[in-house]
Design a binder for these strands. Sequence first.
DNA 1: AGTATTGGATACCAACACTATCCAATACAA
DNA 2: TTGTATTGGATAGTGTTGGTATCCAATACT
Lengths: 203, 203
Amino acid sequence: MRISALAERTGVPLATVKYYLREGLLQPGILTGATQARYTEDHVHRLQVIKALTSAAGLPLQKVKVILGLIDDPGGDLFSALGQAVASLPPYRSDSEPEYPRARALLERIGQIYDPGYAATAQLEHALEATEEAGMGMTDERLQVYAQQIRGIAEFDLQRMEGSELSPIEYAVLGTALYEPVILAMRRLAHQDIAAKRLGPPG
Amino acid sequence: MRISALAERTGVPLATVKYYLREGLLQPGILTGATQARYTEDHVHRLQVIKALTSAAGLPLQKVKVILGLIDDPGGDLFSALGQAVASLPPYRSDSEPEYPRARALLERIGQIYDPGYAATAQLEHALEATEEAGMGMTDERLQVYAQQIRGIAEFDLQRMEGSELSPIEYAVLGTALYEPVILAMRRLAHQDIAAKRLGPPG
DNA sequence: AGTATTGGATACCAACACTATCCAATACAA
DNA sequence: TTGTATTGGATAGTGTTGGTATCCAATACT
């Protein structure tokens, strides 16, 4: 298909498709002449993934580019590629402290590996720090409850990863980035539901 | 304290404090003369909240302003003020469709109120839509597992709300915005933990 | 008396994600 | 064949966001 058809199929404006090509997020089409190129279903899929990552997950294009790069070429070590891919998801933490005491305490309490090299460890530390700074520190009890429920979700996620037809990187990144908004929306709705049933509906 | 002390105490650059004053996120200090004003611990707290909402939760200042406004003056109806406050958290959905079929199906299946007027309903719909568009649609089974675990978290949250010393709005907004990054980081770390224990550590 | 700091105003800045315009070459339709 | 539409490619411009930086005269503090 031609570039205009690609734009129409995906709902992405033509000028934006060109922009993504310029930025290297989208592979160029196959040139069929000096001023014509053909695009495939792969391009459609790629654009859908970009759309999902930018608009649904809210990632900046720079990060999307990194992730797409890892999907295309995970390199040798799957485990570290997974880590890198997930590390390029927000929130971004460029620092790498030697120690993250809040995260460490929590992870040790719940019996999980504490590794300051994981990007998510820094994310957790800073998230916990932010709750404290705002005067909303989380009690041990709360963290325990959260950890247990979240573990339930994560275990399910990993079970399902093995049977997926997508590449593990793609599955992991998209599953992390795209399911997170679902989780948050569900929590908010559960709050509303419980509050409505308890406090009575708005009126 | 003077403005420079305020900046130092909170770690926010002086120019930025002035900027927040300009933008109306921070109340002006009490003038003690034509070129002097005093700031209080309330200003410190306010700045900490702004910092938490912008840097940890990643909110744009505009939204922070709305939330601070609701904290300061929730108006008459607590339930709708809570809804409004949470609605001003990302992801932002300006549309208000009459129907959100994916969200509706899910909520009915798990026995929760379906109300297209809740902002989170639109968020859920779009999040689910994005998973489908990227070829990562969630199965009923997965949604069921997620819903159950999340419900556990939300029920705990609501229990604890009643005994809080903060205003309900402040508790709800900060609890939503600040605990979300914690939840996401914990899920990512749980993934890493399970993967490491199953696939073997990086090496 | 002299230095430092203040509130307040204004100007400037870079990053981000597009959007628009222009071009000559070419595809395609009549 | 003639004319219109579309293409790849380049370049320039846009609006928003979240600040920084600079300047000022007035005023604190020492």
